[in-house]
Design a protein around this nucleic acid. Sequence first.
DNA 1: CAAACCGGGATCTGCCATTTAA
DNA 2: TTAAATGGCAGATCCCGGTTTG
Length: 386
Amino acid sequence: MAALHGVWTLLGNHPAVTLRCGMGIISVQLTHSCLFRKLCSSDARHSELKQAGNPENESLLENLNLMGVDVKMARQRQPGVLRKSLTNEQGVAQFLQGKGASRKVVASIISRYPRAITRSVDHLDQRWQLWRNVFQTDSEIVSILERSPESFFRSSDNENLHKNITFLTSLGLNTKDLHRLLTTAPRTFSNSLELNRQMVEFLEDIYAELGGKNPEQFIKAVLSRNLYILIRSTKRVKTNINILQKSLKLSNSELLALLQGPGAEILDLSNEYLKKNFNNLKQKMAALGSQKADMKKLVTNYPMVLYNGLDTLNSKLDCLIKGGITIKQILEKPKVLDYSTQNISGRLDELKAVGYDFQKNGISVLDLSRKRFVAKMEKLSSSPDE
DNA sequence: CAAACCGGGATCTGCCATTTAA
DNA sequence: TTAAATGGCAGATCCCGGTTTG
């Protein structure tokens, strides 16, 4: 059974097919023929194993076409919507256009999240008002809708949305925090209140376990340092915290400081990615001849180092070393790793040309903003001796 | 004055699987 | 049984400049 399931997963991406073909042994045959028919047909619509009694709504299709909706995309995403007899595509389109969305944007929204057309105008009105509690203008909301239609439309529970806003406010997040949070991770709004609450409670628990005394500020610190936390699973965050603690052998207070400090920024990374980067960093550091303690120091001061993928990080380090920078210097100024390899190597070249002495002057020049760096270079070239 | 510190901006969705509702 | 709702996942940095400090 498990094997079968695996096979279906591998064959992939046709949950509707799988379901409709049933779960029994005979169904393997059926599944194959279903897939076969699907694969062999040029026009998915007609061969799609649509059951006899439930065809797509032709007039709806026509409407959508007229509106410029990519029907093929819509069908692929939410086939059920196209079979509904009652939809509100006109109302939704008018509503969105009234808020400043262009025809094209509306079409794109519906193409990417067809279920949008099942919402009533009243319902949309309500939802829009709720979003306006956080966003100052309609156009801000429109731009988020354009970016991520799903964030706005996936849930139809306005009451839940309202509770979420109340909840987030109750955590002590001010308007600006809220705005930042929802601009960046609009899905947060559509989470169930329960899900958001679970994450917050999970963080509070961790915090208490580690002996923290001010949960409210901890939550605020973590959420504002990592706006994606609330759209991650507690499992993921939990695992990452464990990875950090185990790999670095942190004491409670060290971990606490890390989490409410810069460490929050890497909590949303996928577990495997974090692990991989950790291992790579460990190896790389060892290869460069630094101690275990250095690793701890680096990650503690600058957790973002783990955000860099394996290749990126290695090439950055190599580039610095090649330019005559020592690991010791990098450990003192890990922020240089913030910049792209390109940027770093460009600067190294420029500095080399004027004979900059890193031993004497340190490597802070490397993590200046471009403007500041240019100014610095001008000064250096006009008075080459300092 | 420069260096160091620090937070924030851009953007981070679109898909799949499972559960719930009708 | 189908569609709706919801949870979860993979993906994989770079840069700027205001403010504080020395």
